[in-house]
Design a protein around this nucleic acid. Structure first.
Lengths: 163, 163
DNA sequence: CCTGCAAATGTTATAATGTTTCAAAAATTG
DNA sequence: CAATTTTTGAAACATTATAACATTTGCAGG
């Protein structure tokens, strides 16, 4: 995959969203999954925000653009996107974020800035391996690993006001 | 600290609860924190279950024993217990569990069996260190680390019915 | 084409989880 | 014991998520 901008660094965000959508379309095509207009729109909204978005945030945005949806519509779209690895759910925030590594096998690991709210998805296969092996040492068979690290991102350290 | 039984192994559960309560009392005494009757009762209920308990489960149990509490009562007790490290919150379950290492500095890491629901708190300082250093490699300052590993515990592997 | 099935969406209601606010009671301090 | 702080009670409300059932859409086989 091509290099990807960090959320807390300036970058061409529209291009970043487009790329994510185009990858998503390709992933769905390959798996005969239907990326319907609603699903695609939800994915786009999530990517546009680049910060975790709650289901009801999405619901509000859809409402604002005239699509008066009910909660199940959004949750169903999110379930679909989760199922195909296009978004992740961040339990500690009850929110959703675009997957930066869609299509690649990986464990979910997030760096969540408590100041600016940005989230970086960490790709660290070696770390995943140590986590798995720690579990196995206890005789435990790990299936779903979620690591959520809250703290301060580079930009927010020693600095007190970023959105 | 003395050795502690694994939740999925037979053990004298009442003794295990008593020990946890007695440790909790001692920790609170040392810090001039008031382990009031409600707080202690909530902690006891959580330990007795030995599986993660939702706030409304606790509320129901209190109700069943005649203490007709409202949600804030439970959430306040939980906040207190969290603050003093006597319980942990498991985000992926919206539930709470007794801390097996109260009083010791540690990161929170859980092995959650999807079959029997038991949760083991993993103490693996070396793993904590690697997680921290992975975050720091990205320039991120880690504060709160939560690792939740869902899968199958030893007892539930190759076996299909445990509570 | 069109018919019938499966997948997706719409709609209403409701469940589950968590918080705000203000008042009363209990404990602690001086 | 009076003043203050902490804790608890109680009611209402906010947020997050799901259940249940009706309707529509897309698509495969006749």
């Amino acid at each position: 995959m091509s290099e990807r901008a960090l959320p807390y660094r300036p970058h061409n965000h529209q291009a970043c969203v487009s790329q994510a959508l185009s990858e998503a379309r390709s992933i769905c095509r390959d798996q005969n999954a239907r990326l319907t207009p609603i699903r695609e729109r939800v994915l786009e909204l999530i990517w546009q925000s680049h910060k975790p978005l709650g289901a009801y945030d999405i619901l509000g945005m859809l409402g604002a653009e005239g699509h008066n949806a009910a909660p199940p519509t959004v949750y169903r779209a999110l379930d679909f996107l989760l199922q195909y690895g296009l978004v992740h759910r961040i339990s500690s925030l009850n929110a959703f974020i675009g997957c930066a590594h869609a299509g690649e096998y990986h464990r979910e690991m997030f760096l969540i800035c408590r100041q600016c709210g940005n989230v970086l998805e960490l790709a660290a296969p070696a770390l995943s391996k140590s986590i798995e092996s720690s579990a196995k040492t206890e005789g435990f068979l790990p299936e779903d690993i979620t690591l959520e690290i809250a703290g301060l991102c580079p930009r927010c350290q020693g600095d007190s006001s970023h959105d």
